[in-house]
Each structure stands twice: as C-alpha cells, then as structure tokens.
Amino acid sequence: MSGDVILDVRDIMVSFSARRAGRKYRVQAVDGASLSLAEGEVLGIVGESGCGKTTLGRTIVGLVRPDSGTIRFNGADMIGAGSSSLREMRLKVRMVFQDPNASLNPRRAIGDSVAEAGDISGFFKTRAERSAAIAATLTAVGLNPAFADRYPYELSGGQRQRVGIARAILPTPSIIIADEPVSALDVSVQAQVLNLMMDLRDQLRLSMLFISHDLGVIGQISSRVAVMYMGRIVEHARTRTVLDQPLHPYTRALVAAIPKPDPSKRILGAIEMGEPPSLFTRPRGCAYAPRCPLASDRCFVEVPNLRSAGTDGRTIACHNV
C-alpha cells in the first residue's frame, strides 16, 4: 500500500422512496458506509445484487445525492462544493460502467464519446490537440486510433468496454470508480480488459474503487476488499486475508460459494445458505442474522458495528466472531 488518502467516504446514507402494494416505503440502499482509498490503491467492493455497492459508487461520482455523510477528495468536500470546483473534481473522479452496450451513445462517434469529459470542461485548446489526445487515449487502451470515426455498433463488446475505459481516462483522472466493468464480458475478453486496467493503474498511478460481485476478479486486481451486505460494510481487510481466511459468516458463505473450476473440489449440496431478505423487510438487528449459522439472540435486536479484528487493519461487523 502506498501514499496518502485521496478519497475519504464517511457514513454515507442513501435511501430511495419506493411504492409497493400501494404503500410508500423508504428503502435504505446504503446504510452508513465508510471507506477510504489511498493513492495508487485498488479497493474492491464485493456483495450480492441489491447490497448497495453500485449505489455507493454512483454516490461518489455524484449521480446520487446521499441523505447524509461526507465524501472528501484530497481533503475537499465533494458534496457541498461550488459548481466550478465540483466540475474540476468530476474530471478527477471518473466512472467505468458495467454494460458496454448501454454506456455508449449509439449516435455518437467513438472519438466524441472518448473526448466527452474534455469537451464538457473545455479541456482541449485546439481541434488538433483534441484529435491527438483521442488517438493517444485509444492507443493506450489497445485500440486502433482509426476507431475514433467509427460508431459503437461496429465494435465488439470487449472493444466497447475499452472505449468505456478510454472515456474515463481522458483527461487523466486520479480515481476510477469501476462498476462491474468486466461482468458483461466473456471470460477470455474479461482477462484482456482486467490486464488493461492493471496496466493503466500502474502507468497512470490511478486509484480505483473496483465494484464487483465476483471475488475471483476482485482477488486479481485489488489489494483490499470491502464486503457489503444490505447497505452496510460487514468486513474490510486485505484481499488475500479475506479470500484465505474469511471471518464474517457472510464473507465465508460468499467465498465458499464461488464455483471453483476444479471438479475435485465440489461444494454442491454442502451449502444451504438461504436467500437475502427483501430490502422492504429489513430485519431489526443484524441484516444477515436470518441466514446466519452463528446467529444468537443478540443478533436479532442489535446491529453490530464495524470493529477492528486482528492485525493489518481488518475490520468486521459481527457479534459472534
């Protein structure tokens, strides 16, 4: 691990109003999540669908307004910032989206999509500078610079995701929030894109928040990982530690459920772990208690807070571990 804290997220709460069976509900998508990101570090966020990991990422890039909490970029507040300094910060904190088919405007040429952040902010001084920057960026993500004049439908899924990455690194940002950037890709293409992201991290000294449901992918790219369950971070530690000795019962289930590509290590039938409760019927105590093999009476009434457990900065939210 290296460098100073570049992004500091504290106690983020995000809720949505939803309607179900005629009644209005408040759905707590993110329930007091905190994390920090050091310069050049990749932090993985893992969890099942609906755990709030995507909402947390969208909150950091300003697509969702949190109910409360702070987000600081290099010490400067991102939520209450004035529009000019915020615009500058938006250039520094960028997002890569999951679905490469949906994240590019079908009616815009690839070059225009790649240059969009620069165009919005008036970054390019001349047309020549702009096209040179587009060509250089496309080359950096392993695409032919001639793609600048093509349209998304002419590209394959993997190529489109490379364009999505190119769009996020021009002009060069400090942080990339990557929301499931390889989930929609085939495994052989997935490896190519993961390698590209690791290269860019090293070359451009990028910090990354890497959101994924796939612990295998997270294990490849990130040094630390935060495990989310129903809007809260339940375990946070170095990636190897989490993968090798998961502590929280939910993390253990998650690690155990990865389908290992080894027929001699079959897990089917060995695991019965229930299903996550609906966000509409959040349990009172620990949200994992109804599925948890270790749950005690206390777990059903009192929400466990993150506390440090063991060495190297591991934190965990569980009463019984």
Binding site: S188, Q190, A191, M198, D214, L215, G216, G219, Q220, P261
Partner: peptide
C-alpha cells in the same frame, strides 16, 4: 486450456492474467 488459464480464480497470485488474443 486458454479458457481455464484466463479465469482469475485459477490464477490467484499471478501479476497478469494469461489471455487468448483476438476474438
């Protein structure tokens, strides 16, 4: 063989993932 090699979970530890070039 290529498909198996480029799975991240089979490759834990290595710096880069082996890939199958092209499409």
């Amino acid at each position: 063989r290529g498909l198996m090699d480029c799975m991240p979970s089979r490759n834990s530890g290595a710096r880069r993932l082996p890939t199958i070039s092209g499409q």
